[in-house]
Design a binder for these strands. Structure first.
Lengths: 229, 229
DNA sequence: ATCAACATATGACATTTATCAGTTTTTGAT
DNA sequence: ATCAAAAACTGATAAATGTCATATGTTGAT
């Protein structure tokens, strides 16, 4: 049987924490829980979304394809984060694709069961605004990093980000396992360039790898690099 | 005498369009209209803001300084746009500086007269959310452009953006007059690189200049360039 | 267990962009 | 109108990054 939003701890991380019991009931009754396999798309750039996706488990990349065939990963979404709300709020096709980076469990919430809340419950709307403010700040930071940091610094920063946001397993390996191509697409560089830098970090002893897994050995060195030392 | 928000057409461009008569009155009573000269700061990165700024006239750049002394302009704000709301909403110091790019007239609205509305009037909050959604989408686009377009393409795009967003005068010259350094900071490149590209565009007959003023002659060519032709 | 498809890796080289150094032009204060 | 400071400009060169080619390793479907 399906679990209920009312009992879902994950909603503490998103605007649903501000929803009333009745509102939550409505959401819960209409939501659909889906399993999404690594590599599958939740939605694609240009689609008009009729609902939002709340991540229960796993990680999704939000990316945008450009004319030259390159892909830029704009951000990663994990537990508790909601994807697609922008499209629902402004009633426009989404500007980003969402593709699972690991196996995922997401709840799809049809827009009908939230737009009303969005127009009636200011606490909920305010929470959404607060969270979007946060996303906007992060986006601003990314813009600044893209223009002012070298590829090497951005790769270092990406590893630190992956560690602090998604954590590590018992062996100290990053839980999110991105392909080299994905790392390049987060950082905004060519795959080969990313690979070269990763190799260099390995040689320098900043990180180590085991198969596809990556572990940060010398966090300090990476931080210094990001700071420009 | 000061003009009243109730009669201000500019508020149609921001969330205040959704404010009630009483709410508007409160805002109007507490607001302070300021004149800001070109080059002066409305606020600086790191400041805790106790209100928001609504632009009546002129253009402001929102930028961020980085460790290496470089500046990145994240966006430009003009008539009707509100600056500083992120800081007020999340109650954090602002991550950006706002500096006038032309002489400006702005209204400073103390946060006390809007936070209440933000928590009580869902229409107002929703409008703010809608506008921030728009900003977020734009920011995403900037990220993608930064990583996937060449400096030349980004300069071309910047000119097209300045034309379509801020318009031209009778002579066809861009109304917003950015210094070469500012253009470089919008585009995320070195000032010299921006200058070189501008010179090239002049030679190619895509643009012409008269003193500091810039006019787009061949919009099509610039568009093609942005598209990668 | 095998094999094709894909991901990772590395070298050589081309291209883009930044940096430094210096000149000319513009601007604003007096 | 004059002059100093700032901005715009140009060339030479260095550094960073992308591209292409090719080799090796890994993985998942049969």
């Amino acid at each position: 049987m399906e679990s209920r939003c009312e009992n879902c701890i994950i909603r503490q991380f998103n605007a649903l924490r501000a929803a009333s019991t009745e509102e939550l009931k409505k959401v819960s009754d209409s939501k659909i829980t889906k399993k999404v396999k690594r590599g599958e798309a939740l939605f694609e750039e240009g689609e008009k979304l009729n609902g939002v996706f709340c991540v229960r488990n796993g990680v999704s990349k939000l990316s945008k394809l450009s004319a030259n065939g390159k892909n830029q990963i704009v951000r990663l979404a994990s537990k508790g984060e909601v994807m697609g709300q922008r499209s629902v709020i402004v009633e426009e096709p989404t500007n980003l694709s969402a593709i699972a980076v690991s196996d995922m469990e997401v709840c799809y919430i049809p827009k009908e069961s939230i737009v009303n809340t969005l127009h009636k419950n200011p606490d909920f709307t305010f929470e959404a605004l607060r969270l979007m403010s946060h996303d906007l700040k992060e986006a601003d930071d990314v813009i600044v990093n893209m223009s002012q940091k070298t590829v090497k610094q951005r790769v270092a920063e990406a590893f630190l980000y992956l560690k602090s946001n998604f954590g590590v397993d018992n062996g100290g390996f990053l839980l999110v396992r991105l392909s080299r191509e994905d790392i390049a697409n987060v950082v905004g560089t060519a795959t080969e360039s990313a690979i070269r830098i990763i190799s260099e970090f390995k040689k320098l002893g900043y990180i180590k790898t085991s198969g596809k897994k990556i572990s940060i050995i010398n966090e300090k060195k990476l931080q210094d690099l990001v700071q420009g030392f």
